[in-house]
């Protein structure tokens, strides 16, 4: 026969001994314990333990722990940190941590936003400038040598200037070589889902705002606590 309150339900027996079971459950346990030797013994042992614990001698305080006026003055109830200090400290620390996470996310996913993002912020003006510059580069040897020095110029200079005749501008336009493309290719590249300021710039702006707010909160709350320490 399965034992309903034995090893499977030892806590039920403990609650029964403690008198913390509902009355219906208490009656059910009583009825079972009366006819089950194992549970009856478990109940007896639990009772013995509780009685022994309860009989352990109490302690008397060796002295009065009443606060003296000096102790009370040092930490008066009315002088505890007000809510704004506690919020500023906790919220400030959280804001700083969030700012750090945002900056880390930006750095880990490709570094700081470059000029490309700024250019994309104003597509029309950017397009015009890009078109002018690419035209100048195509006709000027000095412009070609400058392009060669640019960090993103991974191929030969000609690779930037010569458009394969078999390929359409849209097919070869990539974000990395915008400055080398014709205006129509640039337009295609700009409209291929890369418009707007970019999430990295937004994240950095948010991080800066969080850092300012969080740092301010932490500094203000620290100053308040320092003033209180000096006062007491």
């Amino acid at each position: 026969m399965r034992t309903p309150f034995g090893p499977r339900h030892p806590r039920t027996l403990a609650l029964y001994v403690r008198g913390e079971l509902p009355s219906a459950e208490t009656r059910r346990v009583e009825a079972h314990v009366a006819g089950c030797a194992a549970c009856s013994r478990a109940v007896s042992e639990e009772r013995a333990l509780r009685a022994a614990l309860h009989d352990l001698p109490a302690r008397r305080a060796p002295r009065s722990f009443a606060l003296t006026a000096e102790q009370a003055h040092r930490t008066p109830a009315t002088d505890r940190a007000p809510a704004w200090v506690r919020w500023a400290q906790g919220g400030g620390a959280g804001a700083l941590a969030a700012a750090a996470v945002l900056v880390a996310a930006v750095l880990l996913t490709g570094g700081l936003p470059g000029g490309g993002a700024a250019k994309r912020a104003a597509p029309a003006a950017g397009l015009a400038r890009q078109a002018d510059r690419s035209a100048a580069v195509e006709t000027s040897p000095a412009g070609a040598s400058a392009q060669k020095r640019a960090p993103e110029a991974t191929g030969t200079p000609e690779a930037h200037f010569v458009m394969p005749e078999s390929a359409s501008p849209a097919a070869v336009a990539t974000p990395g070589d915008l400055s080398a493309q014709t205006p129509s290719a640039l337009y295609v590249a700009e409209t291929a889902g890369r418009g707007g300021p970019g999430w990295r710039a937004v994240a950095l702006a948010a991080a800066a705002a969080l850092a300012v707010v969080g740092g301010g909160g932490v500094v203000a709350s620290s100053r308040w606590r320092k003033r209180r320490r000096n006062r007491t």
Binding site: R59, A66, L67
Partner: peptide, 26 residues
């Protein structure tokens, strides 16, 4: 009363509980 600033009231509370609390801490 202690929250309103009465140290006497707080100390009455302390004296009421200090034996048991001392035993707990001990």
């Amino acid at each position: 009363a202690a929250a309103a600033g009465s140290l006497d009231a707080f100390n009455a509370f302390v004296l009421r509980h200090q034996d048991a609390l001392y035993g707990f801490c001990a």
